[in-house]
Design a protein around this nucleic acid. Structure first.
Length: 412
DNA sequence: AAGCTTACCAACCGCTAGAAC
DNA sequence: TGTTCTAGCGGTTGGTAAGCT
């Protein structure tokens, strides 16, 4: 899509910064740069490559078009349903919504929503299908917005009187399911109530005294992972015009929790019952996902957050996010300088240290449900703050939700 | 076939917040 | 503690393609 026929040249600062559509040559320069240096430090791209693009533009180009694992093409009806659900819960939080739609960018979703919004408004139709409208209305009435916290990150305001922090494993927490079966890892049940439902995982993080000096970019795996997913800011704001947490009501948390569980999990608990392997957690949009061939000599660097799974999927099982690959061999890497995510990155190391089973390979995750304590399994990593934990769980959850079933007939 | 409208989407802009200094 | 830098988010703009008249 040309914006101005080959770009607009504008004198900015010490040189002309190019605007407008990117050329293939520019893309290549940017990709090469990221390949060498990883994501982040976008302003350095111009300095080091001579690319006449501002850092902002580079970041956007990478995030929206060049990074691997992007899912192009029209939204499926199932994805549209997810967007509806999530928008109903979160409002115009495109980045957060996109984090639950693997391979989709916030820009893409925003564009989709805006055109859909305009279309429906012009047609005088409601934004949400009637059933979603009802569910949202019920949530409003019950004052059960699990996303509502004060700007300082703590639950506060009227909502705080009614709801616990989002991720406390509490009966009134809409996203906390009943206690799971005992897990081998205390971490699991405490920090990942939803994941705990999918059976316990044992995880550990390759120990390192300090974060890596340089981000990681593996050439030998063919696919280079994106950076950290767009985790939300720690200080949450009230989702735009979605839930009136200041209005009356109260005590509806548990009921609303069931409703939300139902909304997100499906009334029949489809997710938990139909997962090909309950111990396996698909995490397609997790931090820095990169595919790892079984024989790959993927180096493990100090500080990398690496997940490499050797737990094979059953024949016919597909990971839709990996283009139909049938193996669970992938690696998570923290492939960017820890700046805004430092707490998260460092926290992983703190949280997971010492949990590794004997004889295990550094940098791998392990699932007790995948052939014993030393059998690696894919699993999530970074989660430190409540919001990040919450988002992580949502990510896992949404990524596992069946994308091919229209349980509510919204697409009819 | 030409003009108009609509939908889509890439890219930009302004703002905010965290980290670094 | 204040300032600067950097990254990210959400809103908006504008070009192109497709459909319609």
């Amino acid at each position: 899509m040309a914006r101005s026929g080959g770009g607009v040249e504008g004198a900015v600062g010490g040189g002309a910064l190019k605007k407008g559509p990117w050329t293939q040559a520019e893309d290549k320069v940017l990709v090469d740069h990221v390949r060498r240096h990883g994501e982040g430090n976008w302003n350095a791209v111009r300095r080091e490559t001579g690319l006449q693009r501002c850092g902002k533009s580079c970041r956007l180009r990478w995030a929206n078009h060049l990074r691997p694992n992007l899912r192009k093409g029209p939204f499926t009806p199932e994805e549209e349903r997810h967007i509806l659900r999530l928008h109903g819960l979160m409002g115009n939080k495109w980045a957060r919504i996109s984090s639950h739609l693997p391979g989709r960018t916030d820009n893409e979703i925003k564009n989709y929503w805006n055109t859909r919004l305009k279309r429906r408004q012009r047609a005088g139709q409601p934004l949400y299908p009637p059933d979603i409208e009802r569910e949202i209305g019920l949530l409003r009435a019950q004052n059960a917005n699990p996303f509502a916290v004060d700007a300082d990150g703590s639950s506060g305001g009227a909502a705080s009187l009614l709801l616990p922090p989002p991720l406390l494993h509490n009966a009134s927490n809409p996203f906390a399911l009943p206690p799971a079966a005992p897990s081998h890892s205390p971490l699991v049940n405490q920090a990942y109530p939803l994941l705990s439902q999918m059976q316990g995982m044992q995880v550990f993080h390759h120990q390192s005294p300090s974060p890596p000096p340089q981000p990681v970019f593996h050439h030998d795996v063919g696919i280079v992972s994106p950076g950290l997913p767009p985790l939300p800011a720690l200080a949450q704001e009230l989702p735009s015009n979605q839930f009136d947490t200041a209005s009356g009501g109260g005590g509806g948390g548990a009921t609303a929790g069931l409703l939300l569980d139902s909304l997100l999990l499906g009334d029949d608990g489809y997710l938990l019952r139909h997962s090909p392997n309950p111990s396996m957690v698909k995490a397609p949009s997790m931090p820095s996902l990169s595919y790892r061939d079984p024989g790959s000599r993927l180096p493990v660097h100090d500080g990398d957050v690496v997940v490499s799974s050797h737990c094979p999927a059953a024949p016919g099982e597909e990971d839709v996010h990996l283009g139909g690959a049938t193996k669970w061999n992938f690696a998570f890497e923290d492939a960017r300088p820890g700046k805004r995510r430092t707490a998260s990155v460092m926290g992983i190391s703190d949280m997971f240290s010492g949990v590794a089973p004997a004889g295990s390979v550094p940098g791998e995750w392990f699932s007790s449900a995948c052939g014993g304590s030393t059998a690696p399994s894919p699993g999530p990593s970074s989660a430190v703050t409540n919001e990040e934990e919450f988002n992580l769980e949502m990510q896992q959850l949404m990524s596992m939700m069946p994308l091919s079933i229209d349980e509510h007939g919204w697409n009819a």
